[in-house]
């Protein structure tokens, strides 16, 4: 497996080439360690996508496709990721907050977090605070991730954190928020532990929390 070529193909969003290479790789019966290297190569490709987006080479439509491509890639790799896939590095309860129906950014973060070894429980869009509370109580995740792109989402994020507090669950989890309108100030006001407008950075923060 040529890892550099794979990274490049993911960066170029060349789905055909990526999927063909991965299928061939899986058919050869690789070790788990080799499979992990391939996942890392795919992630490196996603980082390229992120960079190209920042440079104005790629646009939102390309990000969507990148998310889809990564999800499919992981799907193909699943059988050979075997052992590691049962040994998840942590659990994230994730959702787009109440009143907001946008989920493109959330889905990108989800596929990247899953690729990094997290188990992600996705509550979907327009998620009421109570649904977050209930899931956190049930699953006991290390991390709660909230997404939103409407200005009003910031209020809903605060309500959700307040609801976690009221339920006595706030101290048992780390809270990370993402989506275009989040800022340092908003993060403080909401009472989250971290914020980001970049999914790859979000994954790194989560990895630090569970290591």
């Amino acid at each position: 497996m040529n890892l550099e070529a794979l990274t490049k193909a993911v960066g170029e969003l060349d789905e055909e080439q990526v999927l063909a290479a991965l299928k061939e790789f899986v058919a050869a019966g690789p070790t788990e360690e080799e499979a992990q290297q391939v996942v890392a190569a795919c992630q490196a490709g996603m980082a390229i996508v992120g960079d190209l987006f920042e440079q104005g080479e790629y646009f939102v439509g390309d990000l969507i496709f990148a998310g889809e491509l990564l999800t499919n890639a992981i799907e193909i790799l699943k059988p050979v990721l075997g052992g590691t896939s049962s040994a998840k590095i942590g659990k994230i309860v994730l959702g787009t907050v109440a009143g907001d129906l946008h989920d493109i950014g959330k889905n990108i973060f989800k596929s990247m977090a899953e690729a990094a070894g997290f188990e992600v429980i996705d509550l979907g869009i327009d998620t009421p605070a109570a649904a977050f509370v209930e899931k956190v109580r049930e699953i006991k995740p290390e991390i709660v991730g909230m997404s939103g792109v409407l200005t009003l989402a910031l209020e809903a994020m605060k309500d959700t954190v307040d609801a976690l507090k009221a339920a006595g669950l706030r101290d048992s989890v780390k809270v990370i928020i993402g989506g275009n309108p989040v800022t340092k100030e908003a993060c403080e006001q909401i009472g989250a532990d971290a914020f980001t407008t970049n999914a790859a950075e979000g994954v790194k923060i989560c990895q630090r929390w569970v290591s």
Partner: peptide, 11 residues
């Protein structure tokens, strides 16, 4: 949809 078409133009 916004997401669907973004995928279709490649697939």
């Amino acid at each position: 949809s916004f997401s669907g078409i973004s995928i279709d133009i490649r697939r």
